[in-house]
Amino acid sequence: MTNFKLLNYTFQNLSQKEMSFEEVFQNIVQFMKKDPIGNFRLIFGTDSQIHSTYTRFITGIVIQRETKGAWACIRKVVVPRKMLNLHERISYETTLTEEIVSMFSENRKNQLIDIVLPHIYKGSSFTIEGHIDIGSGNRNKTRVFVNEMVMRMESLGIEPKIKPDSFVASCYANRYTK
């Protein structure tokens, strides 16, 4: 059993509000079982937006069946101050992503793998990605943090993605930070 107080974590999407982590996990299982032959990507990513008196962080969880749709939800965290230090904000975004990733215990990951496993010879696959809202381009202020944040994702055993490939953080989560 996990040490997390999962009651403190609530998730939502356009059709469901106040979901528990268990409900999120069951939605992912149902999505995968509905059509288990495919290339599945379980993707996590966080983005933030500074507002007048607070900073809003949104973590997205997406299960995508490539070319065949996705199921997604978000978790919202509000810090009651303007987080103006870029390193602090990027680091906290990564921490929030790490928190959600860590809720997917080995047992839970194995449950998801077991859905796809009978179909690998038909081309099915399952990967886990951590999308980080940073880029390595010369004009990107976050480029100095790329190695640190990428190593943090790799240490969890998930594949890190940065801009322009980090769409869960830079597009999906970003939409809800405003």
Rank of each mutant, 00 (worst) to 15 (best):
G123F: 06
L6R: 11
G60R: 09
D114S: 14
I28M: 00
K82Y: 05
N39L: 09
E98Q: 13
R108Q: 15
R89E: 00
R108D: 07
K109H: 09
T10Q: 09
V116S: 06
V24M: 07
S170W: 02
K82A: 03
P160N: 06
T127A: 00
L112D: 06
I58P: 12
E18R: 15
N13V: 05
F104T: 12
E88S: 04
S155W: 05
Y54C: 01
M32I: 03
I58E: 09
N3Q: 06
E22N: 14
Q12S: 14
L156H: 09
V62P: 07
S52W: 07
S125K: 13
L156E: 07
H131I: 05
V77L: 04
E18D: 15
F4T: 13
T177W: 08
F4V: 14
N13D: 14
R81C: 00
F21S: 03
F145V: 02
N13M: 09
M19S: 03
Q111C: 12
S166C: 09
D47Y: 09
T95H: 05
D133V: 15
T53V: 10
S136T: 12
H51E: 11
E148W: 06
R175Q: 08
R152N: 12
T177I: 05
I128Q: 11
F25L: 10
M83T: 15
F11K: 05
N8M: 05
T142W: 03
K34P: 01
N138M: 04
I63G: 00
K76F: 02
A169C: 07
P118A: 00
M32E: 07
S124F: 11
Y9H: 09
R65I: 03
H87M: 01
D133H: 13
Q30S: 02
L156F: 11
F31E: 01
N107A: 13
L86D: 08
F31C: 01
A173Y: 08
Q12M: 11
E154S: 15
L84R: 11
F11H: 05
Y92L: 10
Q16E: 13
S48Y: 14
S136F: 12
M83G: 04
T127I: 07
E18K: 15
E88T: 13
R65A: 08
M103P: 12
K5T: 15
T2D: 01
I90H: 08
V146G: 11
L96R: 11
N138H: 13
I134M: 02
G38W: 06
R89G: 01
G60V: 10
K141S: 13
G135R: 10
L112M: 06
N13E: 13
F167M: 05
Y92P: 14
D35I: 00
C73K: 12
V150S: 10
N85E: 02
S20Y: 11
T97W: 01
E93A: 10
R41M: 08
K33W: 07
I90E: 06
I50L: 00
G130R: 08
R56A: 04
M1L: 07
K68W: 04
K76S: 12
H119I: 03
Y92C: 02
T94Q: 13
I28C: 00
P164H: 00
K178M: 10
M83S: 07
V146K: 15
I158P: 06
E23T: 03
Q49G: 14
R56Y: 03
T95D: 08
H87I: 00
S102M: 11
Y176K: 02
T59N: 12
L42R: 04
T127Y: 07
C171G: 11
V168R: 05
F167W: 11
D35A: 03
K68V: 01
E22S: 13
N39H: 14
